[in-house]
Simulated scan of single mutants.
Amino acid sequence: MDQLEFAYPWAFILLPLPVLVYWFVPAYRSREDAIKVPFFTEILRALNETPKVAAGLLSPKHWQRGMLILSWMLIVSALAKPSILGEVQTREDFGRDVLMLVDLSGSMDEADFTTADGSTLTRLNAAKNVLKTFIAKRSGDRFGLILFGDAAFIQTPFTADQQVWLSLLEEAQTGMAGQSTHLGDAIGLGIKVFEQNPQPSEQQVMIVLTDGNDTGSFVEPVDAAKIAAARGIKIYTIAMGDPTHVGEQPMDMEVVQRVSQLTQARAFIAIDQAELDKAYQLIDKLEPQQYSSASFRPKITLHYYLIAIVLALHLLIFSWMTLRQMFSRAEVANE
């Protein structure tokens, strides 16, 4: 048995209590006539006897004594509140909730990102590659994913399962959310995701990857950023590609910078794979991991099991004696 412990070991001093009661407390006595006959006096006179007070003491059987001793031992043991250590459990305290907002407008299919070996990638594939590296370094954070174009939708709620998150990211394709860029609506949806998070973190970070200006959101990006700032959400924005030639029209970097500044974060411009990697490396330094885990073995109390055993034993014995008495009466009646 794994490390049996007693919360109140002093309770065992009660074990000899029944013996002390047996020794120092006399048995209950009751006075009553043992026999009633109209000629009792004549019988005594004939026998030359005088009336005496008789005493009878009921003695329990051996199995009854055993049951009483066992029951008392179980009750005292339950009072001591025994417990054992359960299986090892791990408690994880996640550091940050990081919500990724990825632009899927048609311009994200532009293959103008150059890698270290000279090959080219589409902006979306470049973003996927750097996200895989970024996620792998942050095992203590929970990640969510919002994809946006003409509209924004949640691709992945917050999860610590990196493989699931990456697999759902891999399913993202340009144009699946429309051809335009509704950045303000995407930020607004991100704020709602943070508000509805059942296990909110104190550190809430939003990272936006986009290559174009907002083209018709119900809420302007700057206004959405003000709401995010009021709720303590940081928004890092990464403008992908040349800001003078990307998206449906040249990107308004003033808006991008304003969104990040309002939330006490930073904005970045990534015109190739190397710049995109640097942006995420800097975000990784600005928002370091805050993760901790602790292993423990919970205590499992056993006292209610002991009480249950006592009750079950007495119930069985009472039932057995009742049935035995019923059968005895039936036999006498049949005779």
Rank of each mutant, 00 (worst) to 15 (best):
D97Q: 09
G184R: 04
K278M: 11
A127Y: 09
F134S: 01
E195F: 12
M176L: 06
E5H: 15
G149K: 05
T120F: 15
V255F: 06
R96Q: 03
R96I: 00
F218K: 15
N48S: 12
Q162V: 07
A27E: 11
A127T: 05
E275D: 13
W63E: 05
D103T: 08
H303C: 02
H245W: 14
L20Y: 06
L58D: 15
S319I: 09
E5L: 09
L44C: 11
I309Y: 03
L70V: 01
G106W: 14
D141I: 00
H182N: 12
Q179P: 12
D272V: 00
W23Q: 09
V102W: 05
S71Y: 00
A136Q: 13
I187V: 01
N197G: 08
A111P: 05
M253A: 06
L311G: 00
I238R: 01
E195S: 11
L316V: 08
Q290V: 01
Q289K: 10
G188M: 05
D33R: 15
A265G: 01
L101Y: 06
A330F: 08
R91Q: 15
V21Y: 08
E92M: 12
R266M: 03
M321A: 07
L17Q: 11
V130G: 09
G190M: 10
T174E: 09
W10M: 08
D109V: 05
F143V: 01
L313N: 00
Y8C: 06
V164K: 10
I135L: 07
V219Q: 08
I191P: 04
Y236N: 03
G216Y: 06
G232N: 09
K285T: 02
E248A: 12
L168A: 04
